[in-house]
Computed example of a mutant assay.
Amino acid sequence: MLKDFIQWLLNTRTTPAEAAHVSRSTFSSPTTFSGTNSVGDSWTNNLVTGTACSDGYLNISASTVESETSTGTMLQVTTNNFQVSQVASVSNQGLNFFLPIAKGCSFAVNGIRATSITVRFFETIGGGV
């Protein structure tokens, strides 16, 4: 009886290859948040707003624009926990940054002199225990 039980355990164990396959997450396309995709010479709050549906990363990208009065672009992401900013002083330059964000955390993208503003959310791969 003990021999049969040990054999059953051996037959039903998960191999390392099976365990790796099962733990692999399913790819999900990034979520794109909609909002205002360009801003001129006036600082503007809440260009894009949203809430993270799970733990992951926000990706904010834009292109800089030059105005008649000034050059320089700034994008800022604010949440109730932190604020992150990126500045570019050259026109026709791309801005692109990632930042971690927790599930349920709301955010707002603010800025000045930017175009093609895109905000995407990438879910964290895996999950852990």
Rank of each mutant, 00 (worst) to 15 (best):
86 Q>F: 10
85 S>K: 12
108 A>S: 15
56 G>L: 08
109 V>T: 02
100 P>Y: 06
56 G>I: 04
65 V>N: 02
74 M>H: 06
64 T>F: 09
80 N>T: 12
70 S>Y: 15
111 G>P: 06
73 T>Q: 05
103 K>M: 12
56 G>V: 11
90 V>F: 09
101 I>T: 06
110 N>R: 04
113 R>D: 02
109 V>A: 05
118 T>I: 15
94 G>W: 13
96 N>M: 06
81 N>Q: 12
106 S>G: 05
76 Q>P: 01
62 A>P: 02
117 I>K: 00
101 I>Q: 09
59 N>A: 12
80 N>M: 07
73 T>K: 06
90 V>T: 09
113 R>Q: 10
78 T>E: 11
79 T>C: 02
109 V>F: 01
83 Q>H: 03
94 G>K: 11
75 L>D: 02
77 V>H: 02
78 T>L: 11
75 L>E: 08
75 L>S: 06
89 S>L: 14
89 S>Q: 03
59 N>K: 12
59 N>Y: 13
116 S>G: 15
107 F>I: 00
78 T>A: 15
78 T>P: 01
113 R>P: 03
119 V>E: 00
101 I>F: 05
64 T>P: 14
53 C>I: 07
107 F>E: 01
54 S>G: 06
83 Q>N: 14
103 K>W: 00
87 V>Y: 05
115 T>L: 00
103 K>F: 00
75 L>G: 03
74 M>Y: 09
86 Q>L: 13
60 I>W: 03
61 S>W: 09
83 Q>W: 01
62 A>Y: 11
105 C>W: 07
113 R>C: 03
106 S>C: 05
103 K>E: 12
55 D>F: 11
118 T>D: 13
96 N>K: 13
72 G>W: 04
82 F>S: 13
112 I>M: 03
75 L>I: 14
96 N>C: 09
84 V>R: 14
54 S>F: 02
106 S>D: 14
54 S>W: 05
54 S>E: 15
114 A>W: 08
117 I>Y: 01
95 L>N: 08
79 T>S: 11
80 N>A: 13
114 A>Y: 04
115 T>A: 10
119 V>P: 02
94 G>T: 13
75 L>C: 05
62 A>S: 14
67 S>H: 15
102 A>M: 10
108 A>H: 01
110 N>C: 08
104 G>L: 02
76 Q>K: 14
75 L>T: 04
102 A>K: 15
60 I>F: 08
89 S>P: 00
79 T>K: 03
94 G>A: 08
57 Y>D: 15
102 A>L: 06
53 C>Q: 10
104 G>Y: 07
72 G>D: 15
117 I>P: 01
57 Y>F: 13
60 I>K: 02
63 S>V: 00
92 N>K: 08
102 A>V: 09
72 G>L: 02
100 P>L: 06
80 N>G: 14
77 V>T: 10
106 S>E: 10
102 A>C: 07
72 G>Q: 04
108 A>K: 13
70 S>W: 10
88 A>H: 11
57 Y>P: 01
105 C>D: 08
84 V>F: 12
94 G>S: 15
65 V>Q: 07
53 C>G: 12
65 V>F: 00
82 F>T: 14
58 L>M: 14
91 S>G: 11
83 Q>E: 14
56 G>N: 09
53 C>P: 13
84 V>N: 04
101 I>D: 03
95 L>Q: 03
113 R>W: 08
77 V>C: 08
104 G>H: 05
63 S>P: 00
68 E>M: 12
73 T>C: 12
88 A>E: 07
102 A>D: 06
54 S>C: 09
